[in-house]
Every structure is written in structure tokens, then in C-alpha cells.
């Protein structure tokens, strides 16, 4: 019976949960207006790793609420080149979510990769850069960068590498990943078209006996078509995605960048 009544001198009654305990210090009728340091600036990103290349893409719309702030705001950044123009960069970072945090994250990672190049006389490997990015994100675990990052490049063997992150630094190397506002629209499409999920060989059996379609690495033209299709689909169904498509192809010859139009409505 005693446990039913509060140890709290405030109330000699039933215990309150943490959230709705009455606050003694708040003045009567005080309205608490707290500054919200985060917003969502919409947009979507996508990365697919091929046998000897990686394709990264993102739309170029920047929104706040129902307003379009900018129709040309890139979400893909070359990281760790020798100079500011990033001519000799080998790694690409895409960020989506809260634009200011994304920008800050990009600048941190770029500065770190540049310092690495300066100290060691060689560019950072994607694997090392991926681990470092995770550390940067986790360092702000209790005031996170509200950004979904994807890192793309070529691994030590020259194969395409895609690393995807959550805002607090959990990461994983994957074959493909979609991020941002339309991630839930694009990811299932990618599962089906890149990893051939839910694709079976016709008449190969019943139920569990059905044979899965064998996976094969996609060619670069196939991937580029897939990316455009994925974004055309997302633009049709998500209001925060559109205007332009920024696409970067990372190969052993360097990074090629193209901008394609998307619907502006």
C-alpha cells in the first residue's frame, strides 16, 4: 500500500511517471517556447556499387515545409582532394536531412581527409574514411548531426564501395542504399532491381522450392538508367523531391559529374 503513495514530498498521492510530474518551479500559465535547432530540408539520395565503379545521386531541391528554398542545392560532395576544387578527390559524400548539419559534417570530413593527405602523403582509403565518418557522427551522439550520410568510392581491390550511415554513426558497407525523404519509396525498388529480391526463375518449383534469380553485377549504363528511373518515380510521389538530379560516377579514372533535369512541380 505504501508503494502506491509517493515518496515525492510534492504530492502525497499516486506516483507520476517521469513525464507528467507536476513542476513546482514553473510559474502559473508559463508558456515554454523552446528553440528547435533542427529542421528537415527534404530531398533524397541514392548510391549503387558496381564491379569497378560506384554511382552516387541526389536531387537538388532544398525545401522547408511546403516552400522550395532552392532548386539547385547539391547534396553530393567530393571529399579529400588536395585543393578546394577537389580535382583529385576519390571519395564522394552525400548528405540529406538537415542541410546545415549536412554542410557542417561535409566540411569536417573534408578537412580531416585533407589533413590525412597532408600528413601521410597519400589519399585516405574509403574504408578508413568510412570509419572516421562514423566516429565524427558518434562524437556528437547527444546532439547529433541530423543527416543521413552515404559515402562512396572504390575499395583497395578497385571494387565499388558504398557505406551508409544513420545520424549517430551506425554504419555498414552495402551494395546499394537510398537515403532521405524518398528512401522508403526508392529502397524497395533497389532491392528488387539491384539485388534481385523477390525475383524467381519461372516454373522452377512451388513455394520454398522456387529458385531465386541469380545475382549478377550490373553494368554502368544499367545503373545510370536505374538511378534516373528511381528518381523519376520518387519525384512523382514525394513533394520534397524534384528539380534536378546530380549524379557522380566514381571510377579508377576519377569522378564524373552530371546534372539531369527532374520535374519542377
Amino acid at each position: 500500500m505504501a508503494a502506491m503513495f509517493s515518496q515525492n514530498p510534492l504530492m502525497n498521492g499516486p506516483n507520476y511517471s517521469v513525464n507528467d510530474a507536476p513542476r513546482v518551479n514553473a510559474p502559473e500559465g508559463a508558456r515554454e517556447h523552446r528553440f528547435d535547432p533542427y529542421t528537415d530540408n527534404g530531398g533524397s539520395t541514392l548510391a549503387i556499387a558496381g564491379a569497378d565503379f560506384t554511382i552516387m545521386a541526389g536531387d537538388t531541391r532544398l525545401t522547408s515545409g511546403y516552400s522550395i528554398n532552392s532548386r539547385h542545392h547539391p547534396k553530393l560532395f567530393k571529399i579529400g582532394g588536395t585543393t578546394a576544387d577537389q580535382k583529385d578527390a576519390t571519395i564522394v559524400l552525400s548528405v540529406v536531412g538537415f542541410a546545415a548539419d549536412g554542410e557542417a559534417l561535409k566540411e569536417r570530413l573534408d578537412a580531416i581527409c585533407k589533413m590525412y593527405r597532408y600528413r601521410h602523403g597519400k589519399p585516405m582509403s574509403v574504408k578508413a574514411c568510412a570509419q572516421r565518418l562514423s566516429t565524427i557522427l558518434y562524437q556528437k551522439r547527444f546532439f547529433p548531426y541530423y543527416a543521413y550520410a552515404i559515402l562512396g568510392g572504390l575499395d583497395e581491390e578497385g571494387k565499388g564501395a558504398v557505406y551508409s550511415y544513420d545520424p549517430v554513426g551506425s554504419y555498414e558497407r552495402e551494395q546499394c542504399r537510398a537515403g532521405g525523404a524518398a528512401a522508403s519509396l526508392i529502397m524497395p525498388f533497389l532491392d528488387n532491381q539491384v539485388n534481385f529480391k523477390n525475383q524467381y526463375i519461372p516454373n522452377s518449383g512451388e513455394g520454398h522450392a522456387l529458385q531465386e534469380r541469380e545475382r549478377r553485377p550490373l553494368t554502368r549504363t544499367e545503373v545510370e538508367t536505374l538511378v534516373k528511373d528511381a528518381f523519376d518515380g520518387a519525384v512523382e510521389r514525394h513533394i520534397e523531391v524534384g528539380d534536378g538530379l546530380q549524379m557522380m560516377a566514381i571510377t579508377r579514372h576519377g569522378i564524373e559529374e552530371v546534372f539531369l533535369p527532374l520535374k519542377k512541380d
Binding site: 530540408n41 532544398l62 546545415a100
Partner: peptide
């Protein structure tokens, strides 16, 4: 270009 109270920047 624009900056707001959260440090979000963009140009147009």
C-alpha cells in the same frame, strides 16, 4: 545567398 537562424544556407 541566404542564412537563417539554424545556419541553413542556400542560393538561388
Amino acid at each position: 545567398a541566404s542564412v537563417d537562424l539554424r545556419g541553413t544556407t542556400f542560393t538561388s
